[in-house]
Design a protein around this nucleic acid. Structure first.
Lengths: 269, 269
DNA sequence: TTGCTCCTCACGTCACGTGAGGTGGC
DNA sequence: TTGCTCCTCACGTCACGTGAGGTGGC
């Protein structure tokens, strides 16, 4: 039968049939060599239906083609189905998380006006860092650790390969006796460890991240926003938070142009 | 700052930044007219993060662009979020159904070997049909109704515009006293209704469909396969089933080449 | 002869990624 | 001078859909 009738029988558009011919997924039973007219045979409906059914399970046409090869063992077929199953479950998870994020934003919009900070999930890359950790009496004193770290690196003539980071180890917020570590990526440079200076590898992490522009005066609203977002979006905190000083005093710019990224390692709940 | 540094700060690939420039989503603060070098300003990180956050909710870049326009009222924004929410829920539903279908196929593969019939969900189009309904003593007598219908249409010189269909109204399977209706699409042709012959409109339906090639001798396995599929895939039956005689005796072909499609109207459970 | 069906290009979709080939700036 | 960074094309992705322009068959 001609393509038009085959299309009606199968309820598949002609364009689609021509495309399946082109990619070799479903060749017509014969093609007139002069006119190019495609002739399908009725029992090709069976193969076409198999194609549609597999496509319906979410396989790509390339995968469908592989699954229709005779050389495929039932074992391999089972493997592909299992893989597909896992992929769908994965996708459902992320759609679920996405839905939670949309709902969080709707809720936020009901309460106040515009969101002031934007939170984004990122995957960080593993890096080698030099670190100094200590407990300082208050936040203002964090700069002492900065001086210590950069002083020592300067003596060793090691240049950082990225912006400095502060890691806050306290479980809950505290004004005094803050347990903090200052780290800076050093790449492949050789660094001499000391009593205070350590070198360690930071693994890749999934983090909820927020970028803040402005002077170092009041981080509380940003932290509030970030923690609320994590709550509402169905994540949970999976490690100590960190502040990345993307642009700070060393840039020579105005404090209004300082840029700080706040990250919390997170995991799906 | 130059594109490389901006890319590192934001963890967004340069290619992506150039693309956002190209589509006007995030233009660099300035571009050198001679070299074409892009210069970004640090506070553009805020806009970029908003873009990433909205993209993360599943919006297309075009939608993101609209959402970032100042002219957008909170009301419109809420509308877009609600719509997105509904879309995600919809998609979760269909992923759920897909997962059920994959699992059904896995189960089938465990039990016996290859699936003999392929089941596909289709949307049928609404059609106007001529119909004759009656209760016949057994399946073999269905041809009496065929003769009645085609005889009357022949007298009226009305040509069918599609293959004939039998609709089975019995709730459960029965061998005798079958309540069946023979229908045939008539398109826009004028048909004179009679005592037995009726004209009615069939609405669009969602059906689970199976195509069977072979003589009219034993439909039971096909029905079995179709009903099992519907069960396992999380659908339920939503109306009387129908058989569509895509290629039957009137083709003059051999019974082995008859093609019959079996449909059950279905709904999501 | 007139519709209707069929054909083959060619281009668009979406959000980039992957080179190729060439220049600017230290 | 040598790397490194930046630039602009051009093409590919996936599964078709949308024309344009032309022919075959009744």
């Amino acid at each position: 039968v001609k393509i038009g009738e085959f299309s009606k029988l199968s309820r598949v558009p002609e364009k689609t049939l021509r495309y399946y011919d082109e990619i070799g997924l479903l060749k017509p039973a014969q093609v007139d060599p002069f006119t190019g007219y495609r002739q399908y045979s009725v029992d090709q409906l069976v193969r076409l239906n198999t194609i549609l059914a597999l496509k319906d399970l979410g396989f790509s046409l390339e995968q469908v083609a592989r699954m229709l090869e005779d050389s495929l063992t039932p074992e391999q077929l089972r493997g592909m189905l299992r893989l597909r199953q896992a992929e769908i479950e994965q996708r459902m998870q992320s759609e679920q998380a996405r839905l939670a994020r949309v709902e969080a934003r709707l809720k936020q919009i009901e309460e106040d006006a515009m969101p002031e900070y934007e939170v984004v999930i990122k995957q960080t890359e593993p890096v080698r860092v030099a670190a100094v950790r200590g407990t300082v009496p208050n936040y203002g004193s964090v700069s002492l650790l900065f001086n210590e770290l950069f002083g020592e690196l300067g003596r060793q003539r090691v240049a950082p390969v990225g912006p400095p980071v502060a890691v806050y180890y306290d479980e809950d917020y505290r004004e005094r006796d803050v347990d903090v570590e200052i780290i800076v990526p050093v790449g492949t440079a050789r660094v001499q460890e000391g009593d205070r200076l350590k070198v360690r590898d930071i693994p890749a992490l999934e983090v909820a991240s927020l970028v803040r522009v402005g002077p170092y005066d009041n981080f509380t609203p940003a932290y509030q926003a970030l923690m609320t977002w994590i709550q509402e979006s169905g994540y949970c905190i999976a490690g100590p938070n960190r502040e990345i000083y993307l642009r700070g005093p060393e840039s020579g710019g105005k404090p209004e142009e300082y840029i700080t990224e706040i990250q919390f390692p997170v995991a799906r709940k």
